[in-house]
Write a protein that binds this DNA or RNA. Structure first.
Length: 413
RNA sequence: GCGGCCGUAGCUCAGUUGGUUAGAGCGCCAGAUUGUGAUUCUGGAUGUCGCCGGUUCAAUUCCGGUCGGCCGCCCCA
């Protein structure tokens, strides 16, 4: 048993699971297309350097969660832990893309993070991803969030989610605020939780979100980012909020919303749910105006998000059932041969046909029933001689004789 | 990375206060007259009781380790 176990934190997607998986991706792709986003893909692994520089050396993702290995040539490579860095790298690598601004992209695929698995948290997981490059305007933020809301709506889970938004300001006021926070918490360092003492070095904004009761008390009087946003950041955030309201996308401002990737600026947002335990974030993202320049590309604004497909699947309603097939029950070699030809004709007419490979009448009927077939086409020597088939409706049990060349019409209606 | 819970047939689970052949429901397989499913009836098979080791006359049951899942923290999708 144990040697047949999949690697920790990985899962097989069996056909029934995969249908729901594909439903999420298909729905997202359809909605993205409605907004003019084009799908693309980047490699699953990149040079380690890309993620280290892009996401930030001190982030948890980079410092302890990456699948990094040396290839046979000695290059340090990393299985992508998120999509944005790879897409930005592709933007820098492919000059033609810089002439298509604003560039609107959709992508989906597997991501890898070495974490302790839980429900909704795997080591290989999958994301849908949306990015707009080259649009510094708040309109892009509004649009990107609106696409997300529409996808969640189409999946039937929007009402089980809350959209939280926040502004992380621009680098200028964020640096100022960060220092103000560090000063404040340093003054209370003896009462801070161990966890938060660590955060003070790496990401002090994160302390605002602490679940520790002692930290919460200190947070009550902590200086707020809202008071430290500069005018440009304030205006930008206001425009985003107004746009969301105008679009009819409900949201809550959450001043404690901080994202764990260093590249975010201005808008940060998450769709969260209370239905998935500790893994409440279903889709999240933000603006990253400095990332592409940081990677050595032309200074280009960016905004986007990623959604966890497995998490979305868990919230989703069952996708629409597949169209029910027609099954064949040919009896004898002559009928089997004839059935092959008829089945192809039916399929060319768009009718799904299931063909079993063996068995008598009883077995064929049982298989048909198990496959969820709506009807069975029965052809034996008698029928063959007359150029007819017995057509049995499996729901009503009714059976009638139909000419072989009339089957398409009989099954289409 | 930290703390905790759990691991018995394909699935959901019961059970053994350590002791001959480990159970149920669902599902699966086979029959109920030769070319008719689903429904009903009858019968059948489920299994290294996660894996390795220890204690014991004896372990699926106790202990340790390990692998995996789950819950909370952390982090995030």
């Amino acid at each position: 048993m144990s040697k047949h176990q999949p690697v920790r934190g990985t899962h097989d997607l069996l056909p029934d699971d995969y249908r729901r998986f594909a439903h999420v991706v298909d729905t997202a792709r359809d909605v993205a297309r409605l907004y003019g986003y084009r799908e693309m893909a980047t490699p699953i692994f990149e040079f380690t350097e890309l993620f280290a520089r892009g996401i930030g050396e001190t982030t948890d993702v980079v410092s302890k969660e990456m699948y990094t290995f040396a290839d046979r040539g000695g290059e340090s490579l990393t299985l992508r832990p998120e999509y944005t860095a790879g897409i930005c790298r592709a933007f820098v690598s492919n000059g033609e893309l810089t002439q298509q601004l604003p560039l609107k992209l959709f992508a989906a695929g597997p991501m890898f993070r070495y974490e302790r698995p839980q429900k909704g948290r795997q080591r290989q997981f999958h994301q849908i991803d949306l990015e707009v490059l080259g649009a510094p305007e708040p309109g892009a933020d509004i649009e990107v969030i609106s696409v997300a809301a529409d996808i969640l709506d189409r999946l039937g889970i929007l009402e089980r989610c809350v959209l939280k938004v926040n502004s992380l300001g621009d680098p200028e006021c964020r640096g100022v605020y960060r220092q103000v926070l560090v000063d404040y918490y340093t003054g209370h360092i003896d009462k801070l939780s161990e966890e938060s003492k660590n955060r003070l070095q790496r990401n002090p904004l994160r302390i605002l979100d602490s679940k520790d009761e002692g930290d919460k008390a200190i947070n009550a009087n902590a200086p707020s980012f809202t008071d430290h946003l500069n005018q440009a950041s304030r205006d930008f955030f206001a425009a985003v909020k107004d746009g969301l309201t105008a679009s009819g996308v409900p949201f809550e401002v959450d001043p404690a919303l901080v994202r764990g990737l260093d590249y975010y600026t201005h808008t940060a947002f998450e769709f969260v749910t209370t239905h998935l335990g500790a893994q409440g974030t279903v889709l999240g993202g933000g603006r990253y105006d400095g990332l592409i320049a940081e990677l050595g590309g032309p200074p280009t604004a960016g905004i986007g998000w990623a959604g966890g497909i497995e998490r979305l699947m868990m919230l989703c309603n069952e996708p629409a059932p597949l169209p029910r097939p027609v099954a064949f029950a040919p009896l004898g070699p002559a009928a089997e041969a004839k059935a092959l030809a008829i089945a192809r004709t039916l399929r060319r007419a768009g009718i799904a046909v299931e063909q079993d490979y063996r068995g008598n009448m009883k077995r064929r009927m049982q298989r048909a029933n198990k496959l969820g077939a709506r009807a069975v086409v029965i052809i034996g020597d008698d029928e063959l001689a007359k150029g007819m088939a017995q057509l049995k409706d499996l729901d009503s049990g009714a059976q009638r004789e139909v000419a072989l060349d009339a089957l398409v019409d009989a099954l289409k209606g």
